[in-house]
Design a protein around this nucleic acid. Structure first.
Lengths: 144, 144
DNA sequence: TTTCCTGCAAAAGCTTTGCAAGTAC
DNA sequence: GTACTTGCAAAGCTTTTGCAGGAAA
């Protein structure tokens, strides 16, 4: 709790009860919740919390590098407070699971760096991050 | 044009003027247009075309395997009629560029197959497709 | 005490849907 | 002729915004 306060301070974010609650729920969640899911979960501890505040707060977190908005094709945006480079599996029911970090790291390491440099040169862009998403046919069966 | 008719027939889609126009615009586009962009472009040839039809048609195309809805974090969904496994660069302005297919194929080939099998086993999913997105800091400078 | 944050409600996108008329097969 | 498609308008979602009161620094 005190940790989160210093985290906010380091990132130039004011510390409010709502933000503490939202961040705590997001950081503990493994399911990459939507704004609305966060709202209902954080409501458990913060009885007075509005959905608009959740959206505003998530936007502030993303802007200050405390979380990431994940791309997806259906429903609302999903958010992830885990900023390490890691992979997701997109299941058929629209949910996202993390790939265990050892496997994800091996897959990312296998990516030839010189090829990325070549792409940067050919397209005239600087690649900040590589986002790998594994698209699954069926929902994960033995993973919650 | 006649090609598209047979393509539709093979995929079990009825052939209407609107669908032909929408598909023609989508297939020629390199910019992964949104439904609204497609609407305005297809309107050039089909004066009577409604946005609802564009949405319904794109949904039918996706369902019948003629195009893919792309995940993104901002604005509306984007669509791609190129169903080959290929990579995208997401630029800071929210647009998506294709990575030249030779480079993309080399990157995909570099991915260790046995690692994917291990992920399938550990998570209990079947991976249908690997989606790699290169996230760029700045808009592409010499690529249109 | 200044600046930022919050809740509320309204508004603004994006997308889907109900329906009557029209079209493909 | 039957089943599917279209345009229109309305509704449904997700997300953003204006504003007045309140809290952080």
């Amino acid at each position: 709790m005190c940790d989160i306060r210093t985290l906010f301070a380091r990132h130039g974010l004011r510390c409010t009860k709502q933000r503490l609650d939202i961040y705590a729920v997001l950081a503990e969640s493994k399911s990459h919740p939507t704004a609305e899911e966060l709202f209902w979960q954080a409501r458990g501890t913060s009885a007075d919390l509005s959905l608009a505040t959740v959206y505003n707060t998530l936007e502030a977190f993303c802007r200050h590098g405390l979380c990431r908005k994940l791309a997806n094709t259906e429903g609302g945006a999903r958010f992830d407070a885990d900023l390490s480079e890691h992979l997701h599996v997109a299941t058929a029911d629209g949910s996202l699971c993390d790939v265990p970090s050892d496997l994800g790291a091996r897959l990312l390491d296998a990516m030839p760096k010189e090829l990325l440099v070549e792409i940067e040169e050919r397209l005239g862009v600087r690649i900040a991050r590589v986002n790998i998403e594994l698209v699954a046919d069926e929902p994960a069966s033995d993973f919650e």
